[in-house]
Amino acid sequence: MFRNNYDNDSVTFSPQGRIFQVEYALEAIKQGSAAVGLRSKTHVALVALKRNAEELGSYQKKIIPIDKHLGVALAGLSPDARVLSNFMRQQSMASRLLYKRPVPVARVVNAIADKAQVNTQHYGKRPYGVGLLIAGVDETGPHLWEFQPSGQILEYFGAAIGARSQSARTYLERSFESFPDVSRDELVLHGLKALRDTLQQDRELTTENTSIAIVGIGEDLKQYDGPRVKRFLDLLGEDGTRSQRAARLDTAMDVGGGADDDDDELAGLLGPGEGTSAMDTTE
């Protein structure tokens, strides 16, 4: 029976040049429910699917506000996300105290990336088991970043992480070119549509399981949960997407299976026309 000898720690490369512990961490993200982020010229929105482990329990928080101009959505181990978001909050508050400046989004994202990278290069440490979508607005406008446990960070027009997030990415890839000019509500609507595509066939987006956060130029981060999500879900309505979705599910359903490294790096929308085409369609 085959046994992997190169995954006992995060400091040993496999002969193929892979660090398995880091890849397992990426798998942990796929265990988490999906989160979608997308950006217009004026706003960034985070839309996430909350899960409750059992009927008797509460729903897992998916969006963590960091500051007035900054928030994150997570997929994976939420305790790890807490550690990272607490750190981001520290950075953010320090920036406000010392310079009276909201921390630039790229800088705080770089800071957690450096933190995460350290865990991939020291014996006895483990990578963070969480992926983050970071939405924020600063001097240079709205920004959406994706953070991975490897320490990799990339900026996106639209991105999705978590279980079956490939379906959401597929949606974003098809429609992201219109994002820059859409309104605040339309941006959220696109996010909801993308998120809906990650649902299993018998599931729905509800006021219970949907979490939304929006931040814009001159507009503080605002989070919507529970009944307040209803307004956005109403916008989503029943506009014929159900059948389209069903059709899409047949061909483009994401499966948290083997890691297709190369595709993963390209997944999402690196820039106009740079998105991936077909992803793993294996069921």
Partner: peptide
């Protein structure tokens, strides 16, 4: 160092000095 589009302007410099 980050070589991004962010800069410190007078309000930030003043705040820093005051701290």
């Amino acid at each position: 160092y980050p070589a991004d589009d962010h800069q410190l302007y007078a309000p930030q410099v003043h705040t820093y000095i005051s701290r």
